[in-house]
Design a protein around this nucleic acid. Structure first.
Lengths: 202, 202
DNA sequence: TGACAATAGGACTGATCAGTCCATAATCAA
DNA sequence: TTGATTATGGACTGATCAGTCCTATTGTCA
């Protein structure tokens, strides 16, 4: 059936490199030259393998959200408590403010901001990805309620929406250059809200 | 001193049109052709008056933040209570989700997302603008504490940071296409956090 | 009337963009 | 060895970009 010269590069590695580039610079500001350089591919290989810049971008979005969901699921499974899981996640976002190279925000949220208004295909991929991530947090919050860690008086959906909103806000602050010291108390307030009247998780 | 043919267009109207365009499409995605069309200027007039695209953009940022600060200050002065002022602001953000033309988010936050990482001049203008807006909310929260509307146990700065973070998150959700119904409870939770243990503002 | 300033419009530059095409090289199966 | 298939790199296309420059016109004031 198929024969011929075998592919010399690894598709997933190439996608990872492309994701890094798109993530750091955004879609429009990433040129094909940038992609060829970081992916270490020839133009022909890129077009033959991924179609074009737009299709490549959608592949990167998909790969990113799959990775994020699996990492989060694992972290949730390995956490000693739901409060710890959620708080660690918030602190992880904040700690990205420490240096510029990690101050990139969330690839999904960045893309929503850049393209969701004018590119329906990408918008769909992004909202699907965000939904999958939110589903992990929904499971976490449901679990936290059952274990009496979180406020059971409020509908889970509201808490999930609140958490996703808060995370997006933190990420924007980090990207905008807010200093870490001012964000820790914000994370405390967010956790306090999730857990009802209980004192904040330490 | 100066004589010659008088300027036929209104600078502030032209800036308003440019702001509308930049706001809707972002900096990179706005071409000079787009600007000439919406501003109703010839290329010569634009360059003579505003220098270039970049300087024009900075003018738009400045104009936007000045307008925003003055509108917010007036709303605060005219509000029956601080809680009402803050809650109305959150609901105003949410109500922008109703149709696509108003689903543009905040011009300052959008710009921070698009350009703050790679354009120090614009980054400075944006962070200055955000600081001015935050200052209005700082005054509001200080006032709310004195009038026993808000939680006095927490430092004002923390509450301001929390509020700015929450607003940014809400704006991202609106831009990402979240439905209004899911955001009202989020706004309630934010207000509840600001006011301490009191029931949410209705 | 003459100096001055702002207008409009178009030609032009040099750079960059995404994407196509082609000749050549490498690797497979038969 | 041959033919099919794929990889690769560079030349090329057509479009668009911001910005410059030039000419000609229109209006205001001294």
């Amino acid at each position: 059936m198929t024969s011929g010269r075998p592919r010399e590069f690894d598709i997933d590695r190439a996608l990872e490199a492309a994701t890094r580039q798109f993530w750091a610079a955004g879609y429009e500001a990433t040129s094909l030259q940038d992609l060829l350089k970081t992916m270490r591919l020839s133009k022909s290989s890129l077009y033959q393998t991924f179609g074009n810049k737009h299709e490549l971008f959608v592949c990167c979005i998909d790969r990113y959200q799959q990775t994020m969901v699996s990492v989060l699921s694992e972290q949730l499974a390995n956490s000693s408590s739901v409060e710890r899981f959620l708080h660690d996640f918030l602190e992880g976002v904040i700690s990205q403010a420490k240096n510029c190279s990690t101050r990139k925000g969330c690839f999904l949220v960045n893309t929503a901001n850049e393209l969701s208004q004018r590119d329906p295909v990408i918008a769909k991929a992004v909202s699907g990805g965000i939904g999958n991530v939110a589903e992990v947090f929904r499971q976490a919050i449901e679990q936290g309620k059952q274990q009496k860690e979180l406020d059971s008086a409020l509908p889970t959906e509201n808490l999930v929406d609140y958490f996703m909103t808060s995370v997006s806000g933190l990420r924007t602050m980090v990207k905008a250059g807010a200093d870490i010291a001012s964000l820790h108390p914000v994370a405390q307030l967010i956790m306090k809200t999730l857990s009802g009247n209980k004192p904040a998780y330490q």
